[in-house]
Structures are given as C-alpha cells and as structure tokens.
Simulated assay, not measured.
Amino acid sequence: MDILHTEASCGWGGQEIRILSESAGMIARGHRVALACPPEAPIAREAPAHGLELIPLPIGRKRLPGLRALRRLLSERRFDVVNTHSSTDSWLAALACASLRDAPALVRTRHISAPIARTASNRWLYARASAFVVTTGESLREEVIRRTGSDPQRVVSIPTGIDHERFAPADRASARAALGLPADRFIVGIVATLRSWKGHRFLVDAVAPLADPELLLVIVGDGPQQEALARQVADGGLEGRVRLVGQRTDVPAWLQAFDVFALPSYANEGVPQALIQAMLCGLPSITTTAGAIGEIALDGRTALVVAQQDSAALAAAILRLRADPALRASLGAAARAHCLDGFTRESMLDRMEDVFRRAAAARAVR
C-alpha cells in the first residue's frame, strides 16, 4: 500500500514517536510510507532516519495555503490511505479529500483522551469523513463513539506497541554502571516529556518529605515544564535526591537501572508508551487511572494505582514498594507478561495494517 501520514504538531512526544515507529514497521513489511508535516517540526528531522519520505507542507495551522498544498499533493499522488494525527491536519486532510473525486481513504488516529466537543462539524469529521478512527485505548474509543455518533465497527482501539526485545529486563547493576548511577540507592524513575499533565511536580512533592537517604528520584526527558521542575527541586533543596537528566535516546538502559517506575499522569493519556516500556522491562510501576492507563495498570496485579494529583498517595506507594521486594518482583513479572499479550510492536502493526487494508478496500468499492 501507499500510505501518507500527516502531522501538524510542532511538538515532540509519544504521538510523534508512534508515527515513526509504526511507519518504519510498515516500510519493513513492504509498504511505501510518506510523511507530510511542517518543515520546522521535530518529526521532520527524525523522519528520514526511519526510512520515511518527507514531504514538507505548511499544515501547522488551519489555513488556506495548507489546505491547497495538501489537496495538490493528494491530486498528484495516488495514496491508498491518509492517516491523520492532530486536529489541524485531520481537518485539512478531510476537507482536501472531500473536494477530490478520487480521494484516498482517511484514517483518523486519536492519541489523547481530551474530550471531543459534540458539534455537527466533529460528527462529520469522525462519523462521515473518516473511513476508520483509531484510538490508543478502549476508553478513548468509547469517547469517540459516544460524542460523535460514529459507527462502532469503524472505531478501533489500537494501543501503541513496543519492541519487547529492546525493552526487556536486564542486569540492574550493569545498567547503573554504564549510566553513572549509584549502585546503592533505591531509584524511583520516570521517563516522560516534561508536560504539566504528566504529573512530575506531584512526584517531586511525594519524594520531598520522605526520610530515606537512599531514595533517589531520576527524571528522564525534557519539555515545557523543565524550568519549573528545576526551580521546584532547587527551592526544596532536593538536588541530592532528585536528578533531572534531560532527553535521552538510551531509554531502555535507564528503565533497566530503576527499582520502580512512576507515571502520575492526570490527563490526556491513551495507553502511555513509557508505561508499557517500563512494564516490559519488568519494573514495578506506580501510576493513575488517567485516560486508558487502566488497560495495563491493574491495581495490585500489574501496578500500584493511586489517585491523581495526590502526592501523599504517591509517597505511600513508593514506601510500600521500598519495603516489599517480593511485591516489586511479582508486580514486575506480571506487568511484563500482561504487556506481552497485546501491547507489542508486532501486534500494533498487524492491527494497523488490517485497518489500512480495510479502509483502502472500502475506497476501491466506492
């Protein structure tokens, strides 16, 4: 198949990483994949390294030049499927396709759990303009159906799949030695873009009052909240107990070095990639019920689930895992087993490939 992804966002996070990972997997399966995005977007810099054809277009805003550019591309190139990802490019692609006689099938992937406004325009976009809607979690799928009136048969939950061979348990001491982390500390870690709704500040607040000199919080990632978090750590005198290490590409090694993974998100989540990665590494995790997290975080079975925006609950969960090595081991083993059953990269590719084929087939009949 000839597949075109569109992405209007000029940010960087799990959404962009999924597009690249999924696209590279489809290319490996013999499909032709291109990406249309603003030339200044971070994903534009990364796309060639993943084998994608990059098509720079002015689609960062809902404006006429972007619509014209996308319409021109779709009229000149015969794509089988257009897979859109953000609101802006979804609207531009839907309008472009609606104005063409022989348009490709439109698949709208919705990555986040923010509410969808109940408007006639959204009902058109989701229920009529899109051949299929893909969500990254079952609760997001139910939200789309409930708020847009879309046919349930054309709304599919396909969580982001992770490479279970790359993200796997490994020797913790070796990982720490390679990263320069102390061998004798109990390390709670988080790997996530520093956005407000990821809940980093509550995690720092949770660690601050704990009287445990061996406890160390390691924060991997960068983003809009970097300065605020650095200030929070400095103001609290926590420099020896909290480390912000910035953006890293060697994510598996960091996860393999942790004792516990924490992700206290309180909004906008599907099934977070970082949490799946941590679970596949066999880490006991502390998280919340935000978005579709409940599909992998089963309280007391595959993770400890705490209330959102609750530093005291986070602290209690950290102390519980600190004191109970057997619980840490059982949660980590169960987490990996659960994620191997449906949250791997190959599972995602199989299901996305099926959606693309069905969308393209429906277009051919039309």
Rank of each mutant, 00 (worst) to 15 (best):
T109A: 13
H111Q: 14
A114W: 15
A114I: 13
P115N: 05
R118S: 13
R118D: 13
T119C: 07
T119P: 00
A120G: 14
A129F: 11
A129Q: 10
S130K: 05
A131Q: 15
V134W: 03
T136Q: 06
E138A: 11
E138L: 04
L140N: 15
E142W: 05
E143R: 14
R147M: 08
T148D: 07
S150R: 14
S150Y: 00
D151C: 05
P152Q: 03
T160E: 08
G161S: 11
H164N: 13
E165R: 15
A168I: 05
P169K: 12
R172S: 11
R172N: 08
S174N: 10
A175S: 15
A178Q: 13
G180H: 12
G180N: 07
L181E: 01
P182Y: 08
A183R: 14
R185W: 08
V188E: 03
G189N: 03
L194W: 01
R195A: 09
R195H: 03
S196M: 04
H200D: 01
H200E: 00
F202C: 00
V204S: 00
L210N: 00
A211T: 06
D212S: 01
L215I: 09
V218S: 04
I219N: 02
V220D: 06
G221V: 01
D222T: 11
Q225R: 10
E227K: 06
L229P: 10
L229Q: 08
V233L: 12
V233F: 03
A234T: 13
D235E: 15
G236T: 00
G236I: 07
L238R: 02
R243F: 09
V245R: 03
